[in-house]
C-alpha cells in the first residue's frame, strides 16, 4: 500500500527518477514492460512478493546461498515453525535483511525501498511456511501482524 508513498518521500535525493514520480506520474511504461515492483507491489500476493523481492537473496525454491556469508535457506528451516518469528523478521528486518514495514526514515534514502502492508506480510509469511517443502500449520492473519511490535 505504501510503495507509491515511499517514492513520494524520496524527494531529498536529486535523482530524477524519484522526482518524476513525485511529480505525479505513475510509471505506466514500466508496467507495460513488465516491471513489477513500483506499480504492482501494492496488490501483490505472497507468491509474487517472494518471486520479485525475497528470492533475490533467499533464492528460487527458498534454497538460500553460501558465499563469504550466507542467506538462510527457507526450505526446511525450523525457525519457520513460528509464524510470528517470520512475520517479525519481515516487518523489522534482521541484520542485513532490510525492514519491510513502513519506515519513518524512508526520506533519508535517495531510492525507494519496498513497503509491505500487514496483509502482505501475513501473505508472504504464510507462503514461505507452506512452500519449498515446508508444511507448517497455522496461518497468520493481517490482524495478528498488525499487533506485532515494530
Amino acid at each position: 500500500m505504501n510503495a507509491v508513498n515511499t517514492w513520494r518521500r524520496v524527494l531529498i535525493g536529486a535523482s530524477v527518477l524519484a522526482l518524476l514520480v513525485a511529480a505525479g506520474s505513475a510509471p505506466v511504461l514500466a508496467q507495460q514492460l513488465g516491471s513489477f515492483c513500483v506499480p504492482a507491489l501494492k496488490s501483490a500476493d505472497g507468491a509474487q512478493i517472494y518471486a520479485h523481492i525475497c528470492q533475490g537473496c533467499h533464492m528460487p525454491g527458498g534454497k538460500g546461498a553460501v558465499g563469504a556469508g550466507h542467506y538462510p535457506a527457507l526450505a526446511g528451516d525450523r525457525a519457520l515453525s513460528s509464524a510470528s518469528f517470520v512475520a517479525l523478521t519481515v516487518l523489522n528486518g534482521r541484520r542485513n535483511m532490510p525492514r519491510f514495514a513502513r519506515r519513518a526514515d524512508a526520506g533519508e534514502f535517495y531510492f525507494a525501498l519496498p513497503v509491505l502492508s500487514d496483509a502482505q506480510v501475513a501473505a508472504v509469511t504464510n507462503y514461505v511456511r507452506t512452500h519449498f517443502g515446508n508444511h507448517y500449520r497455522g496461518k497468520i492473519t493481517a490482524a495478528e501482524v498488525k499487533a506485532l511490535p515494530r
Binding site: S35, C37, V38, H52, I53, C54, G56, F109, F111, A112
Partner: peptide
C-alpha cells in the same frame, strides 16, 4: 532500491 531488489531476483 525496490527496482534493484526485483532485478536481483
Amino acid at each position: 532500491g525496490v527496482d534493484a531488489m526485483e532485478f536481483t531476483a
